[in-house]
Amino acid sequence: MPLHQPDYGLDGFEPADGGHELHSRDLGISSFKVLGEYRTHTDSYFVLLDEGATWGIPGSPQLRAVHVSRDLRTRTFEVDSKELPLYAMAQSYLIARGCPADALSPPAGVHDPADDLTRALEARVRGDGDRFALLASYTADMRDPVETAVMLRSLDPQAVPEFRILLEQFDWDSNTHTLREGAFETYAAAVDWWEAWSDEEAPALPPPAPAVRRGPAPTAPATPVPPVSRRPQGRGTRHSAKPVSADRRRAI
């Protein structure tokens, strides 16, 4: 089914401040199309596809989660949004801002899970958004099928395994996708797999074991979680997806 441009429902409302005015203007570009939306009298939630992202920075996230809140008394609005690589991650972002957990499913035939394993993993991602930091993501939209890789780190410094990689494969012919997960005890091991994936030589993802907690550290406490990386650094092609080094990660 054809996708439509978002209607943020802001007629008769003014931005709460200059920052929200600029933010709302940034969301007014014609390349945004609605994959999922939910509305109340005061709030609107959207998962948007940026159809222009494929022509921008290689590997950039192609989804954006948007929350619009309206103050009916002052007739003002506030907007916040975030680029995210996976639909379930966009849902998690909006659920944390008050959207019902089951309210943002995309229309049938647009972005359907291909199997029960994908459904189960996406349900966990929706509920685990506050447990992991996003270290890197890369959408390889020139591959067939399209692939998106996401590297996460547990926010619990005692969790084992500490690093996870999610890999989504999207089939344009059926509009279905699979999502799989791998677990890595070290950042170096996760990067090794990522670089092999970048070169289209990745082995199977190591199956995730149930997360456990390390015992108390006998020396110094665990190193704090590093700042989140906006996206990995590419080599100038759609198939390049090298993650940033640990000392170059920066906050979104």
Rank of each mutant, 00 (worst) to 15 (best):
L3C: 02
H4W: 08
A16P: 01
D17P: 01
E21N: 07
L22V: 03
L22W: 09
R25T: 04
G28W: 06
S30G: 08
F32G: 01
F32H: 11
F32Y: 14
G36C: 00
E37I: 00
R39M: 05
T42E: 13
Y45P: 00
F46N: 02
E51D: 15
E51W: 11
G52W: 13
G52T: 10
A53Q: 14
W55V: 13
P58C: 09
R64W: 04
H67R: 15
H67M: 10
S69E: 12
R70F: 04
R73M: 12
F77H: 13
V79K: 02
D80T: 14
S81A: 08
K82F: 06
L86N: 10
Y87H: 08
S92N: 11
Y93F: 15
L94T: 03
L94N: 04
A101G: 08
A103L: 10
S105D: 11
P106C: 01
G109L: 07
V110H: 07
V110P: 05
V110N: 01
D112W: 01
A114Y: 01
L117K: 13
L117S: 13
E122P: 00
E122W: 01
R124S: 06
R124L: 02
R124N: 06
V125R: 00
R126M: 05
D128K: 05
G129E: 06
D130T: 13
D130S: 15
D130P: 04
R131I: 06
L134M: 14
L134F: 12
T139E: 05
R143H: 11
R143K: 13
D144M: 10
V146D: 09
E147I: 06
L152F: 01
L155A: 09
Q158H: 09
A159Q: 15
E162M: 12
I165H: 07
I165F: 12
W172S: 14
W172A: 09
S174E: 12
N175S: 15
N175K: 04
H177F: 08
H177M: 11
G182P: 00
A183I: 05
A188S: 13
D192E: 14
W194E: 04
E195D: 13
A196Q: 15
W197F: 11
E201N: 15
P208E: 09
A209W: 10
R213S: 14
R213V: 10
R214N: 12
T219K: 06
P226F: 02
G234T: 08
G234A: 00
R238I: 04
H239L: 10
S240C: 06
P243Y: 01
R249A: 00
R250K: 09
R250C: 07
A251G: 10
